[in-house]
Nucleic acid binder design. Structure first.
Lengths: 132, 132
DNA sequence: CTGGCTGCAAATCTTTTGCATCCTG
DNA sequence: CAGGATGCAAAAGATTTGCAGCCAG
């Protein structure tokens, strides 16, 4: 339920529109994608508001910022930990849910305290395989 | 040996300087880092040349572009496959060499032909742990 | 010689910021 | 009503591009 995602934040119509767009979205949209989409319903929407809202949502853990696309940040509204599958041709990004046990032996930690990990699988998506 | 890394490309002094800087570098420098470093020996060096050279080296597989830093591209001259350890505080990036067998069951592949993977481990580096 | 490379500047793209105004709680 | 949020425009970074002149092969 959307309300829970922004509990503690002011519920402005703009934020609700952004959340509605993100709800269930599996396209890992960029800030620009979000802006363009929400702009249709909110002709006055500004980038500042999009970035602003994403920042707040990130801090609350409601969305995460993906460092997967070399050209821009993308956002993922799926809160449970998961990894990604990336097409080398069209850059499409899919979620992939598999649990791996990635143990790091002490001598490889180089003094780090490790708190998490993220796996990117690279490949060619079905559409691009056929297109070839 | 540096020459092998650019076989087939013109060996200009600028390129040699960039390669010399990258040789053995484990800092995962950004284009700007490389530019600044090489500028000291080459006061006329331009960004275009840095990006240009990196593009050529990428195509030859001599360096790889890392999508690890949300703010800019970083480059890794280490050609053998490896993963990375990232400090959440200071953004320092270290190489980590561990082989994991990441099998992806057919039903999770979603039609992709998987060609590779990259693991990012997140944590806090020794310096930042102490600083706290 | 000649095509690839360099250097410079301008352009593009993404993201951030300042600030006056607005409106949720 | 106050403080957080919005909208606009300008600024800041990173990266790309156009193009004239240069030089490695």
């Amino acid at each position: 339920m959307i309300k829970n995602k922004i509990k503690g934040l002011k519920m402005t119509p703009q934020r609700l529109a952004i959340l509605a767009y993100l709800e269930g979205n599996i396209d890992h949209p960029s800030a620009d994608d979000i802006y363009k989409a929400v702009l249709k319903k909110f002709p006055t929407m500004s980038f500042a508001t999009v970035y602003n809202t994403l920042e707040s949502l990130k801090n609350r853990g409601s969305v995460s910022e993906l460092t997967i696309d070399p050209d821009k940040k993308r956002f993922d509204p799926n809160p449970d930990p998961h990894n990604h599958l990336i097409c080398n041709k069209c850059r499409k990004i899919l979620d992939i849910h598999i649990d791996y046990e990635l143990r790091v032996p002490y001598e490889k930690k180089q003094g780090f305290e490790i708190t998490g990990n993220h796996i990117k699988f690279y490949g060619i998506c079905p559409k691009c395989r056929r297109g070839k």
